Each structure stands twice: as C-alpha cells, then as structure tokens.
Amino acid sequence: MSFRRALALAACGLAGGSVLFSAVVVGKQPGRGSDTDTRLGSSSATVPPATAAPPATAAPPAAAAPPGLLLLPPSASCPPAPGWIERPAANSGYWDSNWDRREPLALINLKKKNEETGEEELSSRLNHFKAKATRHIFLIRHSQYNLDGRADKDRTLTPLGREQAELTGKRLASLGIKFDQIIHSSMTRATETTEIISKHLPGVKKVSTDLLREGAPIEPDPPVSHWKPEAVQYYEDGARIEAAFRNFIHRADVKQEEDSYEIFVCHANVIRYIVCRALQFPPEGWLRMSLNNGSITHLVIRPNGRVALRTLGDTGFMPPDKITRT
C-alpha cells in the first residue's frame, strides 16, 4: 500500500471523529520468528511478514502491517486502516470527564432542549448542574497495630502505633485547615487511629462506615506469591471497596458553595485502590504502591471533575525510627 493511500486512510479516520495513535512497536516473542502475536481488545491477530505488492490489475488484499506493529480493526465509518494506526483500549491515556457521573452535559436530556431559546437555554441548564467548589480529600492509613490478634477487636494499636497517630494528628492540625469531617473505617485499628487524631482536631465530626473496611479490592497485576486471597474475597471485598469509591470520591455537590476538606481514616489496600480509580489508572496496579502507617495521601477534585494527587503516603513529619509499614 502506498504512503499516499495510508495518509488518505488516516485522514478518513480523523474525519470520522476518531482519535488516532502513532504506531506502537511490539517486540518479537520468543519462538515466533518474524510473526507477532498481539491482542487488541478481546480478540487476537497474527501479523504476517510483508509480502510483495500485487499487480496493479488485481484487487487489493486486506492491508498488512509491517512486522511488529499493531493492527487496527476496520470501523463502520472508514475502510480498513493501515497497521501503524492503533485505536487505544478504554482507559489507556484518555480522561473520562464523566467518571463520577456528574458531568453537567451528561445530566441533561438534550432531546428536551427548548428549540426556541437554543444555546442560551442549554447554557443556563448546564450552569444549574455545574459544581462550584473543590474537594480536598485526605486519606490516612491507620497506625501500626497488633498483628497477633485473631479477631478484629484484638487488633488494637501498638504503643508505637499510638505515637504514630499522635504525630499524624499534629501534622494535620499544623496545616491550619478547617476540616469538615472525619470518615473512618469501622475496624478497630482505624477507629483507634481516628480517636487519637481527632484530639488534635476538636469539633470535627466523626463518622464510621463499613464500606472503608480493609479487604482485597481486585486481583493485582503483576500477582504476588506471598498474598493470595480466595477469588470469592476479591468478588465480595471488591464490590464493597468500589462502592466506597463511588460513594465518597466524586466532585462536589452543586449545592456546595465553599471548598471542603475531609479526612478518611482507613487501610492501605483501600487507599491504593481509590488512588488508582481516582486518577483513572489501571486499578489492578494498586499493589505496586506502598504506604506507611499513619501516612497522609492528599487528593484534590476540582469542580470540572479533574483530579490531582498532591501527596502519596507522606510520613516526612515522622522521625525515621517511628516509620513502619505493617
């Protein structure tokens, strides 16, 4: 296929509203010679080696990509595209502006738009659904606790864990922020950590929830050998932790006029999963992060739904001999 034809096909993809990527090179797999076995979505395609061009009078065969390039499947609006163009899979570099289902345009039924007032009416309705405030979310991992406890009630904070909670509470108080509330896991170690922290933040309301309890959010990738819960645990815990994310992590309500500052005291697995989901990173990567006891993770959610990670697992306010990850 000529380069001119390739450019024409690329232009067709752009005209149809598709976003195109440049070629993604895939290395050869051992034992496959010059062929490359790739997966695009849920299907598999083998790219053959380049062959000689057919005679001009013959009907052109399906376009073949050079070895080592991903194939782009045909679309309804365009003929088969050359292999050096790739349509990205979901969540691979694209920001979903309606990730929390609070994007104003998604909340309006455009079919009911007033035809007489047109754009002015639409603009007015959009403003009705737009958030005005920024949410600051501080995710605190509980302090060190007694690992020998068989039941949750026996897994209380160690003396060092209580020191860590004191240091975290002092750090939060030193920020000079008027916190709106503390939402904490109902597990013993998170509840005790909350009680100590709250002494340094008098007057801040405390709320306990089962949604933030520790668990196995989703099977990690890559897997680890030292921690392998049963598949049913991922199924049960994952649904609950995902529910916690959807319930607590979203842009501000449209009725909220001022920026808010909220503290969530919970667990390492929950925090790591929430960070991945909030930043729209693959949630399976949650175990690639490590969080110290009593650490502070700061997420910011803007009115337009954009999310920023200010700090991840900060324990710089603790002396080195007080830092643990148990």
Rank of each mutant, 00 (worst) to 15 (best):
254 V>M: 09
214 E>N: 07
130 K>R: 15
177 I>E: 03
62 A>R: 14
293 N>Y: 08
124 S>D: 06
56 A>C: 10
254 V>D: 08
45 A>Q: 14
293 N>T: 12
46 T>V: 15
160 L>K: 14
87 R>P: 11
301 I>L: 01
42 S>G: 06
152 D>Q: 09
83 G>Q: 08
268 A>H: 06
120 E>N: 08
162 R>Q: 15
242 E>F: 08
272 R>T: 04
209 T>M: 03
276 C>G: 03
322 K>T: 09
119 E>C: 05
303 P>V: 04
9 L>T: 02
305 G>Q: 02
313 G>D: 04
105 L>M: 05
250 H>Y: 10
112 K>C: 00
234 Y>D: 06
47 V>A: 05
120 E>R: 03
320 P>I: 09
326 T>G: 05
18 S>F: 14
171 R>N: 10
15 A>L: 13
30 P>N: 11
230 E>M: 05
152 D>R: 09
268 A>W: 12
307 V>G: 09
266 C>A: 06
197 I>V: 12
26 V>G: 11
24 V>Q: 05
279 L>I: 10
143 S>C: 11
66 P>T: 14
271 I>V: 10
33 G>D: 15
281 F>A: 15
5 R>M: 07
222 P>H: 06
133 A>C: 07
184 H>M: 07
315 T>Y: 11
210 D>R: 14
132 K>R: 14
295 S>Y: 09
102 R>E: 08
178 K>W: 01
137 I>P: 00
266 C>I: 03
265 V>G: 06
71 L>V: 15
169 G>Y: 07
241 I>M: 07
280 Q>E: 04
312 L>P: 09
192 E>L: 03
50 A>M: 10
177 I>T: 00
248 F>I: 00
168 T>H: 03
259 D>Q: 03
30 P>A: 15
150 R>D: 01
144 Q>W: 15
295 S>D: 06
303 P>L: 06
178 K>D: 09
82 P>M: 05
127 N>L: 13
132 K>C: 10
197 I>T: 07
92 S>K: 14
212 L>D: 00
309 L>K: 11
166 E>K: 15
290 S>W: 12
271 I>G: 10
68 G>M: 01
1 M>V: 13
141 R>I: 12
159 P>K: 02
104 P>N: 00
86 E>R: 13
87 R>N: 07
266 C>M: 05
312 L>N: 04
88 P>Y: 02
257 E>W: 04
27 G>W: 00
56 A>D: 12
267 H>A: 09
213 R>F: 01
40 L>H: 15
209 T>D: 04
54 P>T: 04
